[in-house]
Each structure stands twice: as structure tokens, then as C-alpha cells.
């Protein structure tokens, strides 16, 4: 999802016999549904895994501003422009809620930024695809934010209090994002032939990358079991992916658009849609840095950081001066 490749320090689920007394007490607390708060004792591996997951999630929100930000100046109406601006501002807000949750685990904001800019830290594969037309803004809201909601709703029950609370705020705002995207798609789908074609083209390009957002299939997801035992992850990647497909196909039918999957078919026995094979080579290739926009996205973040340095330093200098003036007075 927004954190697709969260490695836990060991790929093996720790059993009770592996755990020290303190760790057993911690697991008891989780099993009883008690939330963990910043100053509580926690196993080092739990802390590290959360830092990885929350910071990847935060980086995704921040980098996620770029594909849509690309269209702010070219939105078709003033209203659409204002809406998109508000949406992109929300993404910045979501990044900040998450960085602040990660910081309660003892990692600094500047270190997390450094890890993003150096390429050490990951962000979601989905933001390495280009936004070629206005319909892409619609497809992102509808599909990408729709997939994000699917993942973030259960995270509101995550065992780590600050992360769960950040997710409550995020989820409240995310629904607006999905609806504005669907609204863009609906207008285009009911528009001229060219507008309909534009909507279909966006669906064609964003469908598979959206399914990849849920991360590797369960049998290749070696770190999931431990994250589930820790209450950091609630549902498996494949479960959420299936839920997303089942929810989205009727919406696409409503729009009169065709999902680009010849194997997509309703399975009456399972009461689910069966869908075609996902190209996991593409997924791992994008994660490894070879997607169509990886270099551009990271370049934009690096530029923003270095070109904003004078401003950050200016604010610091101003506050230092105010403090000195107050002392002198």
C-alpha cells in the first residue's frame, strides 16, 4: 500500500518460546487489545518496523503531491482548481500527521527526510507513474485514493496509538479525495467522445498499478505474519486487493468504462470477481527505482529541499533574533 515493502527484522514469526518475559507481557497486552503508547516498553523490532512503515507512508503522502500538483495550473475550471489545490494540501497534511507519529518512536524528522532524499527510504510505487491528462487526476482520486482508503480504514485500529490516531484524521479527509476523483471521471465518461476516450485511457493506465499498491501476493509477503501478530497490519494484501476489485468493478460499470483485464469475471460460487495475473516484475522494477518517473519524483523532492534551504534558515535566524531582542529588552 502506501507502505508496500515493510521489512520486519526477521522473516520468521516469533513464537512465545523465543520471547523474554518482557516481550511476553508486551504480546499479552497486544492480544488483549491494549494500545501501545510512545513511552511504553516495546521490542526493538516492533519499534523499527513501525518506523519503517509510518515513514514510508509519510513519504508516500509527500511524494504523492507531485503527480496531481502537475495539473493544478491546468485544471479545466476555477472550481476544479480550488478543489485540487485543497486535495493536494490535504496530502501534505497527511504526511505531517504521519511524520509526527513516527517521531514519537524516537526518529527525527530531518533523518526521515534525509532517508527519502538519499533514496534509502521507499515510498509507494504508484507515484512513479506520470499524469498525462486531466483524466489521470480523476483516476488517481477514484482508484489510488480508493485503494488507500481500503488500507487505511483498518489501520485506524493499529496497535500503536499515535499511528492509529493519525489514521483517524487521514480517513476522515480521504473520502473527499475519492469522491472528487470519481466526480471527474463521471463528468468525462458522460462527455464528448474524446472525453470518454480520455477517461478510458486513464483507467487503462492506472488499473494495474492500483492493484499493485496492495503489495506483493500473500505467499510472497514474508513479513506479514509478524506485523499481524503485532497488530500493525490487520488484513492480508490479497484480501484487501480482492475487496478493492469487488468494490470498484460496479463503479466502473456505472461509468460505462471497461476495466483492462480480459480475465475479469464474476465468480458466483465465491461471490467475488476473479481477475487476471498481476505483472509483479513491473512492481519490483518500479520499487527498485526503474519506474517511468522515479528519477523525476526524487529529483523534485531534492530540489524542493535544497531550494527551500534559504527560507528555512531565514525563519530560524528570525526566531533567534527575536529571542535575543526579548532577552535584551
Amino acid at each position: 500500500m502506501y507502505a508496500q515493502e515493510v521489512k520486519t527484522p526477521s522473516s520468521r514469526l516469533r513464537s512465545r518460546s523465543d520471547m523474554c518475559e518482557q516481550e511476553c507481557a508486551f504480546q499479552d497486552k497486544l492480544d488483549a487489545g491494549t494500545k501501545i503508547e510512545p513511552k511504553d516498553w516495546m521490542p526493538d523490532a516492533y519499534r523499527k518496523t513501525l518506523v519503517r512503515q509510518i515513514s514510508q507512508h509519510a513519504h508516500s503522502e509527500i511524494v504523492g503531491q507531485l503527480p496531481e500538483g502537475n495539473w493544478i495550473t491546468r485544471a479545466p475550471t476555477l472550481e476544479r482548481k480550488a478543489i485540487l489545490l485543497a486535495k493536494v494540501q490535504d496530502e501534505a497534511g497527511h504526511g505531517l500527521y504521519l511524520y509526527c507519529a513516527a517521531e514519537t518512536l524516537g526518529v527525527s524528522r530531518d533523518d526521515m527526510t534525509a532517508d527519502l532524499l538519499s533514496g534509502r527510504a521507499k515510498y509507494s510505487s504508484i507515484f512513479n507513474y506520470p499524469t498525462l491528462t486531466w483524466a489521470d487526476v480523476g483516476a488517481i482520486g477514484w482508484l489510488v485514493d480508493g485503494a488507500a482508503i481500503m488500507n487505511q480504514v483498518p489501520l485506524q485500529r493499529c496497535s500503536y496509538g499515535p499511528y492509529a490516531r493519525a489514521m483517524v484524521r487521514v480517513c476522515k479527509e480521504e473520502s473527499f479525495h475519492q469522491r472528487q476523483g470519481f466526480d471527474i471521471m463521471r463528468v468525462l465518461a458522460n462527455g464528448t467522445e474524446a472525453q470518454r476516450a480520455m477517461a478510458q485511457d486513464a483507467l487503462d493506465r492506472w488499473w494495474w498499478p492500483s492493484l499493485m499498491m496492495f503489495g506483493p501476493p500473500d505467499d510472497a509477503s514474508v513479513h506479514s505474519a509478524q506485523s499481524m501478530a503485532w497488530g500493525i497490519k490487520q488484513d492480508s494484501n490479497d484480501e484487501l486487493r480482492q475487496k478493492f476489485v469487488d468494490q470498484t468493478v460496479p463503479q466502473s460499470d456505472f461509468l460505462g468504462l471497461k476495466i483492462p483485464d480480459p480475465d475479469l469475471i464474476w465468480n458466483d460460487d465465491e461471490q467475488h470477481y476473479d481477475f487476471g495475473a498481476i505483472d509483479w516484475h513491473e512492481f519490483y522494477d518500479v520499487i527498485a527505482g526503474n519506474g517511468p518517473c522515479n528519477a523525476e519524483r526524487l529529483g523534485a523532492r531534492c530540489n524542493a529541499w535544497s531550494e527551500g534551504a534559504w527560507y528555512r534558515e531565514g525563519l530560524k535566524a528570525h526566531s533567534d533574533k527575536q529571542r535575543l531582542d526579548r532577552k535584551a529588552a
Binding site: 485543497a86 497534511g93 500527521y97 509526527c100 507519529a101 479527509e173 525563519l315 528570525h318 526566531s319 529571542r323
Partner: peptide
Amino acid sequence: VGSLHAADAETALCNARDVYTRR
């Protein structure tokens, strides 16, 4: 509601308005 970084208290207030009261 949460936390944020800012150079001084006045900027922290401005940032808090943007980050935590958009609705």
C-alpha cells in the same frame, strides 16, 4: 491533536492552523 516543527511559537501557531484546522 498532534505535534509539528516550527522555528518559533508564532510560526508554530500559523502551521498548526494549516495542518490541523483545514475543515
